[in-house]
Design a protein around this nucleic acid. Structure first.
Lengths: 144, 144
DNA sequence: AAACTGCGTTGTACTATACAACTACTTTGA
DNA sequence: TCAAAGTAGTTGTATAGTACAACGCAGTTT
């Protein structure tokens, strides 16, 4: 079934090509918030706060990596820690006002860059592309 | 136009999620050939040899980065350098027999992983997904 | 010939990452 | 009840990938 193979090969190559560039592009656009920091902060914002361990599990990162990333975000004043009164081992992490503001700015400008890149796509194509990506990643997540 | 915004946001998030994981997944699957090395070697194979400068330009990497990656690939015996007879500053890079063989193995196993992940997609969806990704990346490339 | 340009390497620094060892706290079960 | 086992997070250490700057060498231009 050669056609199917070709499609899979293209998806493989194009996703790889994207992955190669994403970090660098993110860093160029937002020196103050790396791709990883951005993602973690966005998750905190989205979840209304969570634990470091949850972040590690969700993003398949080592807890030490998360610990250091959070330490950096805290140093920048973007995140605050609240010790869980029920379990003193646990720190519940929340974006600060400043963190939420910076996140909103970065999100807006990232979204704008994407908008520009996708400006000449019609809505049906955008919609299908979005759902394909979501479907693809959902499969991936269940394997990680 | 809220629907359009939603699609763009999803694409943004899903591509970012993918990017976050791609390196780690690649490293787990193929400790002998990182995502970057793999990509560079694949390009050499595809182009039937090229210069370090060409690789740097094509992948938006610094020449020093390429220089070190190529040095590593050479040390592994995957790449050989041939000095251009017309210009002694230039080294034309080629995969070795061993490099081409390893590349083929890695490509095959990466492709298989993708095949499995995409096994329950029908052909029309695969085809559309592939062309959306290609279209997306083509836009991106012209901006880099 | 001297100045300029282009290719590649090396020195240095930084970020993201993992793994292992550790501290501090909580839960369990005999 | 209290010791053993488990869990949350930090820190030490090591590695990969990356950029920028300074350099050396080989061609090219004036």
């Amino acid at each position: 079934m050669p056609h199917r193979d070709d499609s899979v090969e293209t998806i493989h190559q194009e996703l790889t090509a994207f992955a190669r560039r994403a970090r660098a592009t993110a860093a160029r656009m937002h020196p103050e918030l790396s791709l990883v920091s951005y993602t973690l902060l966005a998750h905190l914002d989205d979840q209304q706060g969570c634990r470091a361990t949850d972040l590690a599990a969700h993003y398949c990162l080592d807890k030490s990596t998360v610990s250091r990333q959070i330490a950096a975000l805290e140093k920048l004043g973007f995140v605050e820690r609240r010790v869980d009164p029920d379990d003193h081992r646990v720190q519940v992490l929340h974006p600060t006002e400043k963190g939420a503001q910076t996140l909103a700015n970065v999100t807006a400008s990232r979204r704008q860059a994407f908008q520009e890149r996708l400006a000449d796509w019609d809505e049906a194509d955008l919609d299908r592309f979005a759902s394909y990506l979501a479907r693809y990643n959902a499969t991936q997540e269940s394997r990680d």
